[in-house]
């Protein structure tokens, strides 16, 4: 009769303190130890992988441990004729990796290393008549790409180069009855897409268009008895979704609606005490992706060992202050 609620049980001996040094060692060593097969499997998203690693290092105050020059040279080699960036050398350019490249250059305060005008031209060229953005020249449409486009332009200070009104119109057309957003009009609400859409509306100054109470409600219902958050009803809790939900709540000014202490316990339990790094759930394999979102989540929850993180761009606040970018938040 009935089923158990889908959740995890946090064991009493799960990590309950933040192991910052271990995480920094884990990320610093990550690039070296990978075998060729593993490297190949994930090369299609390398640029984002580097952004995850560098951002979490910066949040922990450990950015100088990474090889700045090597990374900047790599980024330069990934810019294409069209202005867009690919995930790695020889791959095709895409908005996803264009944003990651620009984010990394902002962390290093070195946007001048690339041809900025061409990047802007690339982003602008991907906007469609209905205001949406294609991810690349092949035309796939997704609200994630709307976020990538405005985030890239906001970081470069060139937001006025696109039709913002139309872009907003499209994102709003993806809003659902539960206050959430999906990838396209009619698609299911999803915490990752909600993060992109609330982030988009923050960067375009349109957060008043969100039904914050209704959306906040849905987002809070993502918290499970373990304290972890899932991305949709009846999915397991996950550190990365915990970030997306938490950041969205922060953006719409409803972060106090969830049980912060319980979420902190869940995130801390996802650390690997031996190897360092965070996994999606307690006991699983760690990776840089969940390590960033674990640390960034703890930062949003107010952990003072970590630099404050910006909920919209998932970058250290001091980096955004440097470029005078302050995305709106509701209160």
């Amino acid at each position: 009769q009935g089923t158990q609620v889908k959740d995890v049980i946090i064991k009493p001996d799960a990590p309950s303190t933040l192991l910052l040094d271990k995480h920094a060692d884990y990320i610093a060593a990550y690039g070296n130890k990978k075998d060729e097969y593993e490297y190949t499997l994930s090369e299609y998203l390398r640029m984002s992988g580097i952004y995850w690693g560098l951002t979490v290092m910066d949040l922990m105050g450990q950015l100088p441990r990474m090889n700045r020059q090597e990374i900047i040279d790599f980024i330069k080699a990934c810019q294409h004729e069209c202005g867009g960036f690919s995930a790695s050398i020889g791959h095709d350019p895409h908005l996803l990796y264009t944003l990651s490249a620009v984010q990394i250059l902002c962390l290093y305060d070195n946007v001048d290393a690339i041809d900025v005008d061409k990047v802007v031209e690339y982003v602008k060229g991907l906007q469609q008549e209905d205001g949406s953005f294609a991810g690349d020249k092949w035309g796939e449409i997704d609200t994630r790409f709307s976020f990538c486009a405005v985030a890239t332009l906001a970081l470069l200070g060139k937001m006025d180069m696109i039709n913002v009104d139309k872009a907003v119109e499209f994102v709003l057309s993806c809003m659902n009855f539960d206050g959430g957003f999906g990838c396209r009009p009619g698609s299911e609400s999803h915490a990752g897409q909600i993060y992109c859409c609330t982030g988009f509306l923050s960067l375009t100054g349109q957060l008043h268009q969100v039904n914050a109470d209704l959306l906040g409600w849905w987002l809070c219902e993502r918290q499970l008895p373990s304290g972890g958050l899932n991305g949709r009803p009846e999915k397991l809790p996950d550190v990365c979704y915990s970030w997306w939900v938490l950041a969205s709540l922060k953006i719409i000014g409803r972060i106090h609606w969830i049980d912060k202490a319980k979420l902190r316990t869940f995130i801390l339990a996802c650390q690997d005490e031996e190897t360092g790094g965070f996994a999606d759930r307690p006991g699983d394999m760690v990776d840089p992706f969940h390590t960033l979102f674990g640390v960034a989540g703890l930062s949003l929850l107010g952990d003072e060992q970590i630099k404050p993180v910006n909920p919209v761009l998932c970058m250290p606040e001091d980096v955004l202050q440097r470029i005078s970018l302050q995305p709106d938040l509701l209160n």
Binding site: T3, V5, D178, E234
Partner: peptide, 21 residues
């Protein structure tokens, strides 16, 4: 028949909302 499923309650919200709307 299947107690304790968030999905089913969410479905109920959606259908009722459509009617209400």
């Amino acid at each position: 028949s299947f107690p304790g499923h968030e999905t089913l309650w969410s479905h109920r919200r959606h259908i009722f909302y459509l009617w209400h709307h």
